[in-house]
């Protein structure tokens, strides 16, 4: 996924001036982008030492915490927007985290690899797990322990009483609004309680 396009596509979902919590913030590029272009403030949460260091080098606020231990650090509605960009698929307690995201933020934004993208379907039809640019790992070494589809997320959101305000796919740097479950390698949702 083109880093720049991802930043822009997601940033558009974040109202200017928002107080943002970025769960699994990586090197802090998204937060730095939101601060520079949309006047946002906030914090990233990250567990990896090297990524935490990268955030500090950008001058972005970063909290080294393990998301598997929950979001008890953060109060109800403490943030305007909570981001989970390529984070959900790494979490054992993905559903709990989704609910927690909705608890601490007024708006939640998630992005994750869409397992129902047609090349993935084709691979599985041929009897093999997909290995693509978006899902580059073998089945036995993938960190993506929660594989789901665009359509699956809509069901999960409904089940947890969340309102999907916007949903679309991303592929090769473009937004995909036609048949995203089939045509997009990444699923993006903006939701609220």
């Amino acid at each position: 996924m083109s880093e720049r396009h991802l930043l822009d596509s997601i940033a558009r979902l974040v109202p200017p001036g928002s107080r943002v919590l970025d769960l699994g913030c990586g090197d802090g590029a998204m937060l730095a982008h939101l601060q520079a272009t949309r006047g946002c403030t906030g914090y990233g949460v990250e567990i990896d030492d090297a990524e935490v260091q990268a955030c500090l080098q950008r001058g972005v606020n970063v909290l080294q915490l393990n998301l598997e231990e929950g979001l008890t650090m953060f109060g109800d509605n403490a943030f305007d927007v909570v981001l989970q960009i390529d984070t959900l698929q790494h979490l054992r307690n993905a559903e709990t985290m989704l609910r927690e995201t909705a608890r601490v933020g007024r708006i939640g934004v998630v992005a994750f690899p869409n397992f129902a993208h047609w090349p993935n379907r084709l691979a599985v039809l041929q009897g093999r797990m997909p290995v693509t640019k978006r899902l580059p790992y073998q089945w036995y070494d993938t960190p993506n322990i929660r594989v789901g589809t665009y359509a699956d997320f809509e069901v999960l959101a409904r089940r947890n009483g969340l309102t999907v305000e916007d949903g679309f796919g991303l592929h090769e740097g473009r937004e995909v609004r036609m048949l995203p479950n089939l045509m997009a390698s990444t699923a993006v949702f903006r939701f609220s309680k």
Binding site: Y43, D49, V52, L56, N61, V62, L63, Q64, L65, M73
Partner: peptide, 21 residues
């Protein structure tokens, strides 16, 4: 240390936190 971080977050103060293994 996390108690201090939480108290700062509750007050919307700018804070970074490193937990070194």
């Amino acid at each position: 240390s996390r108690e201090i971080v939480k108290a700062l977050l509750d007050n919307r103060r700018e804070v970074s936190y490193c937990e070194i293994d």
